[in-house]
Amino acid sequence: MAITAALVKELRETTGAGMMDCKKALSETDGNIDAAVDWLRTKGLAAAAKKAGRIAAEGLVAVAVNGTAGAVAELNSETDFVSRNEDFQKFVAEIANLAVGVNGDIDALKATAFPDTSRNVEEQVTHMIAKIGENMNLRRSAGISVEKGLVASYIHSAIAPNLGKIGVLVALESEADAAVLEGLGKQIAMHIAATNPASATVDDLDPELVEREKAVLTEQAKESGRPAEIIEKMIEGRIRKYYEQVVLVEQTFVIDGESKVKAVIEAAAKDAGKPITLKGFIRFELGEGIEKEEKDFAAEVAEQLKK
């Protein structure tokens, strides 16, 4: 029997298995959907569909750098235990490497062929769900690059090389010596991991954030009952303080606790004899923004006793 795209699609929707796995199952069972489902079940591949509804907020963040380009990716799992699985670690690391080639574009990454398999990255995730036995989600990826200079990386709470809970990339554009840029970039990346700035520069800061902060500060200043010109100066001063809290180059460098980050970059450029420009950064923290399911253990036990 001819294996049509419609049959493969139907089997995928029924089982949640990968496209190539579905195609093989249909070939093995002469196009019989029910038999193909059973075939996938015996291989442990149909189980991925049942796992897909479970919340995945653990896992790993991975970074990969190739000279002037870098990427960071987050692959989530249900439990922290899986992040210690060597196959899972290798899988996340390979995803980050592939992400560099597509500048971190998540859709392009999912469609990229996964090495040494007949599957793409998205299908390989489904394959890994069945293999490891937990739901997984390739949640996001991002890339950054420079024309000259380098992209430096840092992993906080590393569980293996380039794998951990927080991943940071810093793009420095310069003709300065690579060793100088690497050392500076890593220190800035460590700072970013610690402070989680909202933007690299004041110009990059989301205008909505600034307006929201100004609105709050204006109301606070008005309550002081002072003249309008004094209130205006108060707001200006407080906005500067706000920038020092959320803008990377305006923050106090955590490494020395004294200099502003922009002054550290300027000093490094002076020592290197070449201009150094911070082009941007990426910071991924594992599970940020995911609403984890809160379980009532007592209610869960009670529910089990009813069965």
Rank of each mutant, 00 (worst) to 15 (best):
T14Q: 14
A152H: 02
E123H: 15
T29M: 06
D107M: 01
N103D: 13
A158S: 14
A111R: 09
V92T: 11
L40C: 08
G44P: 08
D80S: 04
F81Q: 05
L45H: 09
A71W: 04
A71T: 01
T15L: 06
K131P: 14
R84C: 05
S77K: 05
R119E: 15
T42E: 15
T117V: 00
T15I: 01
K51A: 02
I33D: 07
K51C: 08
E13P: 14
R84N: 14
I95Y: 06
E94Q: 13
N137Q: 14
A73F: 03
E147D: 14
S77C: 12
A73L: 01
G133Q: 08
A56E: 06
G149I: 03
A69N: 11
S153E: 11
P115D: 13
A64V: 00
I132W: 06
D34A: 15
D105F: 02
Y154I: 04
E28Y: 06
F114S: 10
I55L: 06
G104E: 03
M136I: 03
T68H: 03
G59Y: 00
D116A: 14
C22R: 05
D21V: 08
V63A: 05
D80T: 05
N76L: 05
G67T: 06
I95C: 07
H127T: 12
A96W: 03
K110M: 12
A130D: 09
A99P: 05
K43F: 00
R41Y: 10
T112Q: 08
H156P: 13
M19R: 05
S83Y: 06
V102E: 04
F91M: 08
N85D: 15
V151D: 07
R84M: 10
A111P: 12
Q89E: 04
E86F: 05
G70V: 03
S145C: 00
T79C: 10
G59K: 00
G133S: 12
Y154K: 01
E58D: 14
G59I: 05
I95A: 07
G16C: 02
G70Y: 00
S141I: 01
D80C: 04
S145R: 01
A25W: 08
K24V: 14
L26E: 09
E28G: 13
T79H: 09
V92Y: 00
N120G: 06
A160V: 01
A113P: 14
A152Q: 02
G31A: 08
T112E: 11
K110E: 09
A99T: 02
H127C: 09
L138D: 01
S145F: 01
S118A: 14
V65R: 02
A93R: 08
K43E: 09
T126S: 14
N66G: 10
T15W: 02
G18A: 15
A47H: 08
V125Y: 11
V37H: 07
T29L: 07
M19H: 07
Q89Y: 02
K51G: 10
L26D: 11
A47T: 15
R139P: 13
D116F: 05
E123D: 15
I159V: 15
T79A: 12
N66T: 09
K24E: 15
A130E: 04
E134Q: 10
T112K: 13
G133F: 13
K23E: 11
Y154V: 04
D107V: 08
